[in-house]
């Protein structure tokens, strides 16, 4: 059996805020008890609405922040701070905003080489440059782009620069936080194709964060659906999209507009809005908006469990007739 590139067990990140003289100390539960694993060459997509903890998870896995509870491994090595230095070249991140995430005062070549400069200071400059050029070719940038500044590039090209930079250390895992959300449709498909090509060629594992379900349906192998900081459903793409079990997943899928004007739809109307993460309901976090909620849902929290297709729900869809 192949060793997973990343495994996570009950990963949590809570933030304390306030606690001054007049305000009460409050805890933001940005992420609670996330468990998953990703094999080489596979894509795990994390979906959910704004504030559900997707980027928090990304920061933990890319060794930017420590979890407040739970553990994870990268290529079998525990992701504890003692190991961060040696693990950093194994996991890299690409952000949503191709404008904000690049240093606009540096030339494309030196932006792409920078991780090498830091991680392999002994590598001769000529070797670094030739590696950078190799990366540029791989992501579809032209050789003459090497000496240009990022402001001369379009959004899609800047995202290619960010991807080249992330890949230069030959990581095993790429965390992609909304990598195509800022791109226009005609450019989005170019970048998605590039990501699929690179994955095949380098056996990369992707942690793919997106709120766009049609993109996720296209790229993912497995899917985790998050709500208010918690995974509420996890399974293969086919299972989650084909036979969603958590009512929130069902609602999310039914709210996603489909580019087919002939499709007759029966949209589930969710009442209300996402509660504040400072004020997560007792019991099932989705209960206040759930059309199936019973008394039990409001007092006891359903666990996700370890099943291949798991849903944290007492009354999951598809079990009524089973």
């Amino acid at each position: 059996m192949t060793q997973p590139v990343v495994t996570a067990r009950n990963l949590s990140r809570h933030y304390e805020s306030g606690g001054g003289m007049f305000s009460q100390r409050q805890v933001v539960r940005a992420l609670s008890e996330a468990s998953f694993s990703i094999d080489p060459g596979k894509t795990l997509a994390v979906v959910g609405e704004s504030g559900c903890g997707k980027s928090t998870l990304a920061r933990l896995i890319t060794l930017i922040e420590e979890p407040t509870a739970g553990e994870f491994t990268i290529c079998g090595t525990p992701g504890v701070p003692e190991n961060w230095d040696s693990l950093r070249s194994q996991v890299q991140i690409v952000f949503q905003d191709p404008y904000g995430s690049l240093n606009l005062r540096h030339r494309v070549g030196s932006i792409i080489e920078e991780p090498l400069k830091i991680k392999r200071p002994d590598m001769p400059a000529a070797e670094r440059a030739s590696k950078a050029r190799e990366m540029m070719e791989m992501v579809g940038l032209r050789p003459e782009h090497y000496d240009r500044f990022p402001h001369m590039f379009s959004g899609g090209q800047r995202q290619r620069i960010a991807i080249a930079r992330a890949l230069i250390l030959e990581p095993k895992l790429l965390v992609l936080d909304e990598p195509v959300s800022a791109l226009d449709l005609s450019i989005q498909s170019q970048v998605l194709n590039l990501l699929l090509d690179l994955q095949e060629r380098m056996e990369l594992a992707y942690l793919f964060i997106s709120h766009d379900l049609s993109v996720v349906r296209h790229v993912a192998d497995d899917v985790v659906v998050m709500y208010l900081g918690r995974p509420v459903e996890r399974g293969s793409k086919e299972a989650v999209f084909g036979a969603p079990r958590h009512p929130y997943t069902v609602a999310l899928l039914s709210a996603t507009p489909s580019a087919d004007p002939t499709r007759h739809r029966n949209r589930i109307k969710l009442e209300g809005e996402l509660p504040s993460p400072l004020d997560i309901p007792a019991g099932c976090p989705f209960a206040p908006r759930c059309w199936k909620a019973q008394d039990r849902c409001r007092t006891e929290r359903p666990e996700l469990g370890d099943a291949a297709h798991a849903a944290a729900c007492f009354y999951p869809e598809g079990t009524e007739t089973a």
């Binding site: 379009s154 899609g156 449709l185 450019i187 498909s189 998605l192 194709n193 296209h218 790229v219």
Partner: peptide
Amino acid sequence: LLAALPERATERRLPTIPGV
């Protein structure tokens, strides 16, 4: 543009519009 929509994809590689 319609062909580039992921939800209309028939293959893993999406049709693209070259250039910008």
